[in-house]
């Protein structure tokens, strides 16, 4: 992923201000005191519940897939309440794709590391060599391995992809709003 998207972000801002309301069926964002207040009240609880689900998925229903979706929905709610364009200023495509990529790297990295240590794919018993640092029984190491791929892997992937899809659809068919994606496209060309 390219790093130059940070440099053209201010330009995108100006373009968006000029083009607001021109190419759209109706404005995608309406400032509403009710929605803003509701989101302000609800967001801390949703975020806490999402994080709880992620970190506590091993002991109770839920898990990082659902938790990641809830954390993504926090950003989506904020975008709905305070403006999608305003939210994009601090949540760029690069961050979202980076989040998902880091997730795949952590998941795949741990899985391949256990192969490199002589075990099978995701063979948590290989993590026992970490007993040199901390003494833990085998099932505790399996638990921490699972927490790693759940929180560091799946949650990152799900949250990144869902937020990415949201912002992608939000920029929709508005031809002026493309510059957020061009950095990605050029990086992949």
């Amino acid at each position: 992923m390219s790093t130059d998207s940070s440099s053209d972000r201010p330009v995108r801002e100006d373009e968006r201000l000029d083009s607001d309301g021109v190419a759209r069926q109706r404005p995608a964002y309406t400032e509403s005191q009710v929605i803003m207040t509701t989101v302000k009240v609800v967001v801390p609880f949703v975020l806490t519940y999402g994080l709880y689900m992620m970190f506590h998925g091993a002991g109770s229903p839920g898990g990082s897939f659902q938790g990641g979706a809830l954390v993504a929905s926090v950003i989506i709610m904020i975008a709905f309440a305070f403006g999608i364009d305003a939210t994009r200023i601090w949540v760029s495509n690069t961050i979202l794709v980076g989040l998902a990529t880091v997730g795949v790297l952590i998941f795949g990295g741990l899985a391949l590391a256990t192969i490199a240590l002589g075990g099978a794919f995701l063979d948590y018993s290989e993590l026992l060599i970490l007993n040199a640092i901390v003494e833990l029984p085998a099932n505790e190491w399996a638990k921490w391995g699972m927490e790693t791929i759940e929180i560091g892997g799946i949650a990152f992937i799900v949250a990144g992809v869902l937020m990415g899809l949201f912002f992608l659809l939000a920029s929709g068919y508005d031809p002026e709003a493309d510059s957020g994606h061009t950095a990605e496209v050029r990086a992949d060309d």
């Binding site: 091993a58 109770s60 898990g63 029984p137 099932n139 505790e140």
Partner: peptide
């Protein structure tokens, strides 16, 4: 539980 140390068997 003995093998993975997590209470949620689905996980």
């Amino acid at each position: 539980y003995q093998e993975t140390g997590v209470e949620n068997a689905v996980t």
